[in-house]
């Protein structure tokens, strides 16, 4: 079954592809005008953006099962990348196997729209099960570090990211705290795609805005030991830009009014900043520049979804509190 997307969602997707087409044309002209410039990195980066945009659009427009499978696969890649980067104990191979099994199970709760299980499965059951399995193996050397790292990885790469998939399937209830202001008739039947696109689009634009503001203004660094490029001006300017964009996009694309959209923008701005820094700290601790090389021009999966690991659950619960 293919989703019938609301008109405003189709226009937003069309807009994203228009930007990609424009970027490709500009890059082509640049290459023709200045053949000696080294654009390999930028070309690879743009090509990867094309692949991401096409897959993401298919996930939004395709069946529910396909969308869930897509996000489950992203979680799998992110979790595998994480486990391949961190020190693990040889004795824990079976523990890690069970941790991997949490991915299809977590996404099955999403597919079947079992909210209660979705929200406690990893924080409660996997949190208790994995140490139990490790204790049965019996190696206590480095036990605390091993359990802490595996659970942090599951929470970040699987639990947090899976909120993006659940967003797609939300159905509003009559008894919500706020009555929805629908952007179109059609959105009443499909409120999820607009919300998911707002989350992902604003998270990516927030990354760009923070980077651009930080490059242009500001000297005072926010977290010099974690990410020397982050400045106070970058943070403030980036969050402000995201808030303004949210107020424009939110009412036109989702069931939120402009007040709720403003707060959602604030949450995405601050959450994206924190998520970015969190993955930066992880890489700095491990002494690597990129988390992987699966996305040419970008690095690894974790490099791409770093902000989303914070914004997805924060945005989800904000929306959920008011409308669902």
């Amino acid at each position: 079954m293919i989703r019938q997307l609301p008109t405003e969602v189709n226009w937003t997707l069309a807009g994203i592809f228009a930007v990609l087409v424009l970027s490709s044309v500009l890059l082509y002209c640049w290459r023709r005008l200045k053949p000696q410039a080294d654009l390999a990195e930028m070309t690879a980066r743009l090509r990867t953006w094309w692949v991401i945009a096409v897959l993401f659009s298919l996930a939004v427009a395709g069946s529910q099962a396909f969308a869930v499978a897509f996000f489950a696969f992203v979680s799998f890649l992110a979790f595998k990348e994480y486990l391949s980067l961190i020190p693990t104990r040889r004795a824990d191979r079976r523990v890690l196997f069970w941790a991997y099994l949490a991915i299809p199970i977590q996404y099955y709760w999403i597919y079947s729209q079992w909210y209660g299980m979705f929200i406690i499965f990893i924080p409660v059951y996997m949190f208790l099960l994995l140490p139990t399995r490790a204790v049965l193996i019996g190696n206590t050397d480095g036990y605390i570090r091993a359990m802490g790292t595996v659970h942090w990885g599951l929470m970040t790469a699987v639990f947090s990211l899976s909120h993006a998939a659940y967003l797609l399937n939300l159905q509003p209830v009559e008894s919500g705290r706020i009555s929805p202001s629908w952007p179109s008739e059609h959105a009443i039947e499909e409120p999820g795609p607009g919300l998911l696109i707002m989350l992902v689009l604003l998270t990516q634009l927030n990354d760009v805005a923070q980077f651009a503001w930080g490059k242009s203004f500001g000297r005072t660094r926010v977290a010099p030991d974690v990410s020397p490029g982050k400045t106070v001006a970058g943070l403030v300017g980036g969050v402000a830009t995201t808030v303004v964009l949210a107020m424009l996009i939110g009412p036109a694309l989702t069931l939120m009014d402009w007040q709720r959209s403003l707060f959602a923008g604030l949450i995405i701005g601050l959450g994206g900043f924190a998520g970015d820094l969190s993955i930066s700290a992880l890489k700095r601790d491990l002494g690597v520049k990129d988390s992987g090389s699966i996305l040419p021009g970008h690095g690894g999966i974790l490099d791409r979804v770093d902000s989303l690991t914070y914004t997805a659950p924060m945005f989800f619960h904000f929306v959920h509190y008011f409308y669902f």
Binding site: K80, S84, R90, R93, F97
Partner: peptide, 18 residues
């Protein structure tokens, strides 16, 4: 590097690593 972690000698259980 990595396959020895995924399926080392004497193990039958496969665990994914890059």
């Amino acid at each position: 590097h990595g396959l020895g972690k995924s399926l080392p000698r004497g193990e039958a259980l496969f665990v994914p690593f890059f």
